[in-house]
């Protein structure tokens, strides 16, 4: 070995050692990635096969004959478009209403002074500890009594009361320096203008978190829509897909997986679109 190549090797040794020491981390991360991705790949693989092929090896992920027949049947033989539309309306309306209500409530808790503020906030936080399943029966009875069962509002209104968003908004708004709001006051702003023009833009990442989590929750929720909606025309996409299995004597997995694939698209698009805000929002407040 020449002295030059020896020098080169010595110079690169620390970097090499670092790579080797990180090997277990890379292996661990790869295993987790495979475990997370496998169901998605399996779903897509099944959706792209002929439904007549009932069984295939779990390792056979690339179909020999790719077909879109399941997708054709999905939109011609089922009410998938209607279900998607219902889900989109419910999830979008809930997300928009929730982000408006939660940000207003969060601002009140973060900045305004009123009687029993701390107590009310404590009660809200305590409400987060109650598992949603516990409230299903009283929720159903309440909505039935006011005549909202079997309407989209039966899906939208209950979720608006879930206080996690208020907590998130309050925490995000509490980090905004008071001086910014004072400067806005002197610039002629009312309390609402300060909220609208100064505070909301500064908590955009937290707003994105509330929108995405609300949208996702409403999109994938199955239990409550099954209880609250029995009218076929109002079924959401999760209820619709689950009924596909129940209505057939033999589950048409190709069709179901095609439906699942379609159901995932809006969520995936929303996440990709808001990813930057979402990641910032998840870490906001962790560093000064």
């Amino acid at each position: 070995m020449t002295s030059a190549s020896r020098t080169l090797l010595l110079r690169h040794r620390p970097a090499l050692n670092r790579q080797v020491s990180r090997l277990p981390i890379y292996i661990g991360v790869t295993i987790i990635a495979v475990l997370v991705l496998y169901p998605f790949v399996f779903m897509l693989s099944t959706a792209l096969r002929e439904s007549t092929i009932l069984r295939f090896s779990p390792w056979d992920l690339v179909p020999s004959d790719v077909t879109l027949a399941n997708f054709h049947r999905l939109f011609s033989d089922t009410s998938m478009l209607n279900w998607l539309g219902n889900s989109m309306f419910v999830a979008t309306t809930t997300a928009l209403l929730k982000v408006g209500i939660d940000s207003l409530a969060g601002y009140a808790f973060a900045r305004l002074q009123f009687k029993f503020k701390e107590l009310i906030f404590l009660l809200l936080i305590a409400a987060m500890m109650v598992p949603p399943a516990v409230t299903i029966v009283p929720r159903f009875l309440l909505l039935r009594d006011i005549g909202l069962i079997n309407t989209p509002w039966a899906l939208i209104l209950p979720h608006l009361s879930y206080p996690l968003g208020v907590f998130l908004m309050r925490q995000a708004m509490a980090t905004i320096p008071y001086e910014l709001e004072e400067a806005a006051k002197l610039d002629g702003c009312s309390v609402f203008t300060i909220y609208w023009r100064i505070v909301l833009p500064l908590v955009a990442p937290a707003l994105a978190v509330v929108v995405i989590t609300t949208f996702m929750y409403q999109w994938v929720d199955l239990l409550w829509p099954v209880v609250a909606i029995t009218n076929d025309g109002l079924k959401t996409v999760t209820v619709g897909i689950s009924s596909m299995k129940a209505e057939q004597s033999r589950a048409d997995w190709g069709l179901i997986m095609a439906a699942n694939t379609c159901a995932m698209i809006p969520i995936g698009m929303l996440f990709v679109f808001c990813q930057r805000y979402f990641m910032t929002g998840m870490t906001s407040g962790s560093l000064k």
Binding site: P177, E179, L180, E182, A183, A184, K185, L186, D187, G188, C189, S190, R197, I198, P201, L202
Partner: peptide, 28 residues
């Protein structure tokens, strides 16, 4: 405060971080 027609320069400057210099100056 908004009706007093007084302007204040804060110790921390309190510039609106989401606005450009032009928007900051022209906000009032």
């Amino acid at each position: 405060a908004r009706a007093r027609n007084v302007a204040m320069v804060f110790q921390s400057y309190a510039l609106y971080p989401h606005m450009t210099v032009e928007e900051n100056i022209g906000f009032a």
